[in-house]
Structures are given as structure tokens and as C-alpha cells.
Amino acid sequence: MSSTLEREQIPARRRHRGNVLYPASTPYWFVAPFLVIFLAFLVFPIIYSLVISFSQWSAGSLHFRGLFQYSKLFSDGQFWHSLANTFIILIIQVPVMIGLAALFATLLNSPRLRWKPLFQLGFFLPILIDSVAYSMTWSFILDNHGLINHILNTFGIPSVNWLGNAVAAKVSIMLAITWHWTGYNVVILLGGMQSMPSEVYEAARVDGASAIRQWFSMTLPLLRPILLFEAVLSTIGTMQLFTEPFILTGGGPANSTLTPVLYLYKMGFQTFDFGYAAAIAYVLAIIIAVFSVIQMRLTRGGEI
């Protein structure tokens, strides 16, 4: 950390970087390795993917079919179903998770909380568990004879078929993702809170503002940009949901937890319909791009 301090003490200088000459080719040598990899494994696939989505892949070669894959996709009930599932999951799960994260970050930041490092560590731990490992763990916890039903039974509530019922399966996916990602959002929020001026709070306390009042009129506005950004990042992440439904439900029952990426995987790498899978990927990319644009608008609005 001391090195950052030293760096900041150096007065502003020209961005044009130094006065001593260097060979004109130098910058290109520095950029070249990344650029080669970037072109080969990102730019080329992105363009090639578009070509594939306009084609039919058979016997190792492409046959141009125009918009055939896209028109097939728009009348494919399973694809719409997967999009609908994703929207239902994200509309419920993202606000719940962000709300929980804001609540726990606030509580974990409270000066009256004891054993703070221990509690913060506990909230951080789920981030370290691999998605497959935690999905498997949750699939056993949610089993018909698992822990959650056991708890419900002790309160006299009958067992729920968590992974075998269309509605409950969606709830299960939401539970698992919320468990895994809430701590991540708490960590980010805590970082934001620690950079807040404590004098302001001191002043508010002297003026007799209640804790809840302080939170809504001071903490919330300061956290607003972070919360918005978290919401959009989570939304984009949820649109790409794969591991949790793949492990927990396999997309079932009756496609009630099928997601676009899971469908893409099935079409691309189980049916090997490359053209169709590429079209799915592009439609998904467009939907995500729309969300990214909204993200930029919102975060800019949040920072004012």
C-alpha cells in the first residue's frame, strides 16, 4: 500500500510519458502477444459464429441457409420457455439477493457488532466453493429426505419435492444462487461503506437522526451506484446461468429450469446442431447487450 501513496505524491505530468526517446516499434512489441491471442480466440470466433448462425452445419462443412436458424428459433417453444424461466428467476432472485446483501453489509459494518472479522469471514466463504461442489451440496440438502424437508417436518409442515416440482425447482435454483452470491455482494458493499466519511454519521447522530433514518437518507444514496451496478452484473450473470440448473435439475422437471445456455449446450454439444446453437448464442448476446446498455445508463445516472 505504501507504494501507491508514494506514487500519488508525484506531481501531475504529461500523459505523453517521458522525454527520453525509445524505438518507435516498441509499443507494438508489447501489444502484439495479446493482440494475436485476442484476434485468434475472440475476434475470429465472434465473426465465425455469426457466419455459422446463418448456416447449416453438416458433415464438417457449412451450407448457407440465410435466416433459417433464426426463424426456427423464434418459433421454438423450448427456447422461449428457457428465456421465460430466466426472467422469472432474475426478477425474483436479484432483488432479494441485493436486498439481503445491503442488509447484511449494513449490519456487518455496525460499530456495535462484536466478532466482526469472524462474521465477515463466514459471509465470504461461499465465494470459495466451486459452483459444481455447492450445487451438489444443495441438491442433497434439498432432497426429499434432505435437511430442508427435515426442518419443515419438525415444524409440522409436509415435505416439498424441491427438485421435482416445476415451481419448487425454480425456487431451489434461486436459493442456491442466492446462497453463493450474497456474500460476494456483501464484500463489495462493505468495501464501499468503509470509504464513507464517519464524520457525517457523527454529525447526524448529534442531530438526533435515528439509525434507520440515517440509513435511508445517507447510506442508501452513497451505496446507490454500487447497488445498481451489482443488480446489473447479477442480471447479466443470471442470463448466463448454466452450472446450477445443469447439476441441480438438468433443466427439469418439464423444462421448468431450462436456461438459454443450458439449451445452447444441449443443441450444440449433445445434438451437434452448430448452426442452431450459434443462433441461440447470438440472440442471447443481443439480449445481454441490451442489458449492458441499460447498465451504462443506470450507473451513469447513479454517479450523477
Binding site: 470466433p45 455459422i52 448464442a281 447487450a289
Partner: peptide, 20 residues
């Protein structure tokens, strides 16, 4: 170009990368 590429989700590249 780098900035634009950030907006494209990785799933788009999977089919071509597999062929590659």
C-alpha cells in the same frame, strides 16, 4: 475494439472455438 468485445458474452465463441 477491446471495449466492444467486453460486451459479448463468452457463449458466442463456443461453437467456433470447438471447431477450431
Amino acid at each position: 475494439i477491446f471495449l466492444i468485445s467486453l460486451m459479448i458474452p463468452p457463449q458466442v465463441t463456443m461453437i467456433p472455438l470447438f471447431i477450431l
